[in-house]
Design a protein around this nucleic acid. Structure first.
Length: 664
DNA sequence: AGGCGCACTTTTTTT
DNA sequence: AAGTGCGCCT
């Protein structure tokens, strides 16, 4: 396919965006208006008009959209697309660090993920010495928020946790200790990866020009979700590299990570001489679906000024709104509805179920399992984040970095007779040593860990360039102890994951690269297995669903107390972010939108309006987005309680073990 | 004292 | 699914 035929598929505005001359540009595109298509066309246009493909770097939020964009450009251009790179901000930065570790002051550093951070914070916070201190997880979030926004601890606490403000001094101490520990152990957490690069880009002219000289263009997807730390990366490059950014303020849903949707509005001030373009024609959905989405945004006190028009026009199918007595009936009905559609000839893969949280997916999941409907779940615990896989990978981490305290803790406490305290004592001695052999001697002297287990570390070291074999050996050596640890926690199911890990490892020639790649961009179990069963329903968290679409979309549990969630109540910014989350969910549907909610009694009986009640309390942020829903937008149906006990709870309905690719 | 198993709660969202 | 708390065992 030629570039001309690709451009002829675009509408006028998309084509202008894809072919603008070399200048900074921001493309504001509504949901379904062809954002990805425009980025793909832009990259293809640049390459076919002479920019070498390796001088274009595309930055996206997920591995999935990164590979999709590259794949589509390749489809249009063939070999000349070779060398085009798309990655997340984090993978991009770590690849820069790995190519010039000294320039960033990060020689021999290893990357730690959130779980590792938690371990450190837990240790540093101390057990229950001061239980008023925020939990390790809260400290972790506060720390990360401050790093991503560039706010001081003081400002972060005032904004996110005024409740803990009085403990500011102690919190500061824990955080400083965390930073000292990271330096000591040569750890880089997620935020360090970006910050280290950003810092050097702004302070070192040499490093800046080294990086800038590699690229002519940076194409940034999902610009509305970039935060100040990410901007700190782009800003120093803007004089030498041309920015092409695409985003939608109404789809900004990463405020908890420091993103501010207003940032896309200030783009033109921050980037001198930049152009802003708009895409407003929606090619994804029917007008009936857009009417619901438009209504939701129009109710916001914020003025998005967005009214999506469907290029496809109306379809005469209204979205459906179903109200159930409880979550089990809701889940059961969705399963039944899927079966009906399947019987009518639809494929499983045309259906997507959108949930707010991984936790919220559980009821739906068990309903699909019970009805033997194949599904994949995107958004829960990732393969390499699951406890049993981390256990095995701890050995690989030790080989990559014998000073890895977190890795040692994980490995040592696996064995009988070694708990947290013993492990701590041993680790103190280990950290004084340089080689694995010396470490092994210490462990032999101080614990009863079987020598055979320690040999694995040596074997893995020998195999460090054959990662898949290293994984295989580690698994075999640890199988017994793991089987004991997880004997009551679906061991048979967990055990299968090791094969998948080996499969992933086959592509890599170094342990470090293997671990890093999947820490930064974790793979979901069901993604690995997709090859085996292609036709499945998708269950997906809304945050993971950004950028995706499907013929039929179910949006689950759009109930009072859930949209907006109680968590957001009282904070107008948070409530509006919740509105955008729901907006993202509603705009995923191409042909049919089915919204479900619980607690029909709330609507069956007359009662004082929730919003009126809310006004009396002195807040104008809504308690429930659908409180004022006009009844013309949906086909509404209330399902009466049928008086049965939830089958999902009864023990005789133990979850079947082998149903398609169903992996939670 | 340290380790371990059991029963219990508690879940936003992600790199 | 993982963290916490409690009581028992070595």
């Amino acid at each position: 396919m030629t570039i001309d035929s690709l451009l002829s598929e675009l509408n006028e505005h998309q084509r202008i965006a894809a072919t603008i001359p070399r200048e900074h540009a921001l493309v504001l595109a509504g949901a379904g208006c062809g954002k990805t298509k425009t980025i793909v066309a832009r990259a293809a246009f640049l390459i076919s008009s002479g920019t070498p493909s390796h001088r274009i770097q595309i930055l996206t939020f997920t591995r999935r959209s990164a590979s999709e964009i590259v794949e589509r450009v390749r489809m249009h251009l063939g070999d000349s697309a070779e060398g085009l790179k798309a990655s997340t901000f984090h993978t991009w930065c770590i690849s820069l660090i790995r190519r010039a570790p000294a320039a960033f002051g990060c020689k021999d550093y290893s990357v730690i993920d959130r779980d590792d951070q938690l371990q450190l914070f837990k240790v540093l916070r101390g057990k229950k010495a001061s239980s008023q201190l925020p939990t390790a997880a809260q400290l972790c979030d506060l720390y990360s928020f401050a790093r991503n926004t560039g706010l001081t601890l003081d400002a972060t606490l005032k904004k996110n946790s005024p409740h803990s403000y009085s403990q500011k001094e102690q919190i500061a101490q824990v955080m400083l200790a965390y930073e000292a520990r990271k330096r000591d152990r040569r750890y880089l957490d997620y935020d360090d990866i970006l910050d280290v690069v950003a810092q050097q880009l702004s302070s070192s002219p040499n490093t800046r020009s080294w990086v800038a000289s590699q690229y002519d263009y940076l194409l940034v997807d999902e610009m509305q979700d970039t935060n100040p730390l990410q901007w700190k990366l782009l800003d120093p490059l803007k004089h030498q590299v041309t920015l092409f950014c695409v985003g939608d303020d109404a789809q900004s849903i990463y405020g908890f990570r420091g993103a501010d949707f207003r940032n896309v509005h200030s783009f033109s001030e921050r980037v001198e001489g930049s152009r802003t373009l708009k895409l407003e024609r929606n090619y994804r959905s029917t007008q009936e679906i857009l009417n619901v989405s438009n209504w939701l945004l129009s109710e916001s006190p914020l003025k998005y000024g967005k009214e999506l028009i469907a290029a496809r026009g109306a379809s005469n199918i209204l979205p459906q709104l179903h109200t159930f007595a409880n979550e089990w009936e809701e889940g059961r009905w969705i399963g039944d509805d899927l079966l009906r559609r399947r019987e009518a000839g639809a494929n499983w893969r045309e259906h997507m179920i959108l949930v707010r949280s991984a936790f919220a997916a559980r009821v739906v999941e068990s309903s699909l399992l019970a009805k033997e409907i194949p599904y994949r779940f995107i958004g829960g615990t990732k393969l390499l984040e699951s406890a049993h896989v981390r256990d095995v990978l701890s050995v690989l981490r030790l080989v990559a970095n014998p000073q890895d305290e977190i890795g040692w803790m994980r490995f040592l406490t696996l064995w009988n007779g070694v708990g947290e305290l013993t492990a701590n004592r041993v680790i103190e001695h280990i950290l004084e040593k340089q080689t694995l052999e010396e470490c092994a001697q210490i462990i032999k002297g101080e614990t009863k860990i079987p020598p055979a287990a320690l040999n694995v570390v040596g074997i893995v070291k020998e195999l460090q360039n054959q990662v898949a074999m290293a994984v295989g050996n580690a698994v075999r050596a640890m199988e017994e102890v793991l089987a004991a640890k997880y004997r009551n926690q679906e061991w048979d199911k967990r055990r299968k994951d090791f094969r998948l890990v080996e499969k992933l490892a086959e592509k890599h020639t170094s342990i470090l690269a293997f671990i890093e790649e999947y820490l930064l961009d974790p793979v979901h179990v069901s993604q690995v297995e997709r090859l085996e069963a292609d036709d499945a329903v998708t269950i997906i968290t809304i945050h993971s669903a950004k950028g995706t679409e499907n013929e039929v979309c179910y949006v689950v549990n759009v109930s009072p107390g859930a949209y907006p969630s109680q968590y957001a109540q009282g904070n107008d910014d948070d409530v509006e972010e919740e509105r955008r989350v729901l907006y993202v969910a509603l705009t995923r549907a191409k042909n049919e939108l089915i919204v479900t909610r619980q607690g029909y009694r709330l609507w069956a009986e007359p009662r004082p309006s929730l919003s009126a009640q809310r006004k009396e309390e002195g807040s104008d942020s809504p308690l429930y987005f659908f409180e004022t829903l006009p009844d013309t937008l949906f086909d509404m149906q209330v399902h009466k309680h049928e008086g049965w006990t939830p089958a999902t709870n009864s023990p005789q309905n133990a979850l079947p073990v082998t149903v398609g690719i169903a992996i939670g």
